[in-house]
Amino acid sequence: MEFSNGIRADALTSATWIKSSHSNPTGNCVELAALSDGSIAMRNSRDPHGPALVYTRAEVAAFVAGAQDGDFDAMIV
Rank of each mutant, 00 (worst) to 15 (best):
residue 51 P to E: 07
residue 74 A to V: 06
residue 9 A to G: 02
residue 56 T to V: 11
residue 39 S to N: 13
residue 68 Q to E: 13
residue 41 A to F: 02
residue 19 K to I: 12
residue 15 A to I: 04
residue 24 N to D: 15
residue 57 R to G: 10
residue 74 A to I: 06
residue 9 A to S: 14
residue 21 S to H: 14
residue 48 P to E: 05
residue 45 S to W: 03
residue 76 I to S: 09
residue 71 D to T: 13
residue 64 V to I: 15
residue 11 A to R: 10
residue 73 D to H: 10
residue 66 G to K: 04
residue 22 H to F: 15
residue 41 A to G: 06
residue 46 R to K: 14
residue 31 E to H: 01
residue 3 F to S: 04
residue 21 S to G: 13
residue 42 M to A: 15
residue 39 S to K: 12
residue 31 E to L: 02
residue 31 E to G: 08
residue 75 M to T: 09
residue 20 S to R: 10
residue 31 E to F: 01
residue 38 G to C: 08
residue 19 K to Q: 15
residue 35 L to E: 00
residue 57 R to T: 14
residue 26 T to D: 14
residue 17 W to Q: 00
residue 1 M to C: 04
residue 13 T to L: 10
residue 6 G to C: 07
residue 30 V to L: 15
residue 32 L to I: 14
residue 74 A to K: 08
residue 27 G to V: 11
residue 40 I to H: 01
residue 76 I to L: 13
residue 25 P to G: 08
residue 70 G to V: 06
residue 56 T to M: 11
residue 61 A to L: 10
residue 30 V to R: 01
residue 25 P to F: 12
residue 43 R to A: 01
residue 63 F to R: 01
residue 69 D to L: 11
residue 71 D to H: 13
residue 36 S to T: 14
residue 34 A to L: 13
residue 59 E to F: 06
residue 49 H to I: 06
residue 77 V to C: 10
residue 7 I to M: 07
residue 71 D to G: 04
residue 18 I to E: 10
residue 53 L to G: 06
residue 14 S to E: 13
residue 14 S to N: 11
residue 35 L to G: 04
residue 33 A to P: 00
residue 29 C to I: 07
residue 66 G to V: 06
residue 6 G to R: 01
residue 29 C to K: 00
residue 26 T to S: 15
residue 73 D to W: 07
residue 61 A to C: 06
residue 13 T to G: 05
residue 51 P to G: 04
residue 38 G to A: 08
residue 47 D to E: 13
residue 73 D to M: 03
residue 19 K to G: 11
residue 72 F to D: 04
residue 32 L to V: 14
residue 1 M to R: 07
residue 24 N to C: 14
residue 68 Q to L: 12
residue 67 A to E: 07
residue 6 G to Q: 05
